[in-house]
Nucleic acid binder design. Structure first.
Lengths: 220, 220
DNA sequence: AATATAATTTAGGCGGGCCTAATTATCTTG
DNA sequence: CAAGATAATTAGGCCCGCCTAAATTATATT
């Protein structure tokens, strides 16, 4: 079994990997450790066959590295959704709890939660849950920043990195699958005016950059 | 926060402590580590104010050591019961899962499970669940070994140390709160004959030593 | 092409938790 | 009571995952 540290590194590498290899400094920044620690750990990961690495070039996940990452992400997002649906956690609390639980749950617990949730495909923030055999939706949604007045959009995903942003959104009913009308965009970095369930909100760029949407087909 | 290793040691010491101080060798045996490791860790526990220790004498939990032990035990047993009731785990599976989960759940998760379970006081094996403020039932039940024919008894607790024993008991409906009639005791270490829900079973001493009961008041 | 700057790696150290082997304290018994 | 047996401790090492400081390699600029 891979250590908790290894699991965390692999998850971070997966999230940073966008086609290209990942730099050690990017990993160090995201993990909050020194670059030297990353270099050292990367050697261990390569040793274990989880990544490929050539000195001074970046790091790339191997097949088994990717599998491990997806397993951890599946655990994490299933746990988030389970805590929300079964135990009444609010969506800003679930990430921290899942971060610790994801490393210790058994296959049986994963399966039991997935069954209870009816084999779900997305977590409370709209992030896709990989299937047991490692299939994950790769759909990219559009940032709310940049939508033009007159459009109707549906929220599909929200950044889960800041609990206070989640509380802010929650208080205004801005959850995945909720529809918005884009009313207007104030200039010079001003807010985006939107209408949700008949109520208007002025959303700053710090919000709209972290909310992702799809266009709603006009009903003709 | 105390490390997982510290939490495990404290739990073991609590379980071994029966009025008297606990020897390092007893801890080593139970933890499956060398005595040297125990000596070393005991120093750390004393340092942290969790135990008192004088060289070559045993170890005794302090107030905060006892609190920590009870907190871990509360986590463990709540998790066992939750997995059983909410996720359909069988009672022989819950211990292993709880052993890992008990170290990582938050206060919120503990509270949410306890509320969902309606503030329970015993786990699936009949072991008492300490309350949030550290109160735990100290009732000792009688080993089924030694009950005399003609008595009616109610199972109250079962040793959870052997999953195969739990499966054996489960297959025969021998759960806590089930009533038995003691029919006869075969001599020379022979089996105890009991009747459960109209069905007779011959239970070996390896079973009856690990099942604990209370007498059922006769209905006059 | 030469050099400054930035990224990466190596060197050497530290604490946690474990080990074996050697030593010391306590208990038991002739 | 002394000697052997047993229990507990110390000494010295190992692996993991982290650190800082120093060296090395890549890249960007002139």
């Amino acid at each position: 079994m891979h250590s908790r540290a290894i699991q965390d590194y692999i998850k971070v590498i997966f999230k940073l990997e966008q086609g290209a290899a990942v730099s050690t400094s990017a990993i160090a920044l995201r993990m909050g450790v020194s670059q030297a620690s990353v270099t050292e750990m990367v050697k261990k990961l390569a040793q274990a066959g989880l990544v490929t690495h050539s000195r001074y070039q970046g790091v790339t996940l191997t097949g088994s590295g990717r599998s491990l990452a997806l397993e951890m992400i599946r655990h994490h997002r299933l746990i988030e959704l389970y805590l929300h649906k079964a135990l009444g956690f609010s969506w800003d609390q679930v990430d921290a709890e899942a971060e610790r639980l994801e490393h210790v749950i058994s296959e049986e617990m994963e399966a039991a939660m997935a069954a209870w949730l009816n084999e779900p495909t997305e977590d409370p923030h709209g992030d896709p849950i990989p299937s047991k055999d490692g299939v994950i939706s790769m759909i990219r949604f559009l940032p709310l920043t940049g939508m033009t007045p007159g459009q109707s959009v549906r929220i599909r995903r929200v950044s889960d990195s800041d609990p206070s942003l989640l509380r802010y959104l929650g208080e205004r009913g801005l959850y995945p699958h909720v529809e918005l009308d884009i009313l207007s965009q104030e200039p010079f970095g001003g807010p985006l005016l939107v209408r949700v369930a008949g109520v208007e909100h002025a959303l700053g760029v710090g919000v709209t950059d972290r909310v992702f949407v799809e266009l709603v087909e006009a009903i003709c």
